[in-house]
Amino acid sequence: MFEGVPLNWFLITATLMFFIGIYGFLVRKNLITMLMSLELILNSVNINFVAFNKLLYPQHLEGMFFTVFIIAVAAAEASVAIAIIINIYRRLVNIDVENMNEMKN
């Protein structure tokens, strides 16, 4: 049992983080900064899982395990995304998302 901080507060923090990430994803032009926004989004989801786990069902570990899995997925996603970004950089010499509007090049 965790005293003092209600679940709502965690959720609100995570929500703010999530939509800040969304905002970053929508306005940033550089692909790497977009990737960082994506990490924010994933992280906010993790906070939600953990908070639900601890404050609603402390006897189980689902929230924690899914957080672990999401971290693993985030790592995989980051590695593949960076590989793609480097490949794009080789071809276009910049990594501006607005220059990538064709499927093949």
Partner: peptide, 14 residues
């Protein structure tokens, strides 16, 4: 891990 990866790619591309 991930932040270091991101920093590496920043250094490679910018």
């Amino acid at each position: 891990g991930i932040v270091v990866l991101i920093i590496f790619s920043i250094l490679l591309t910018s």
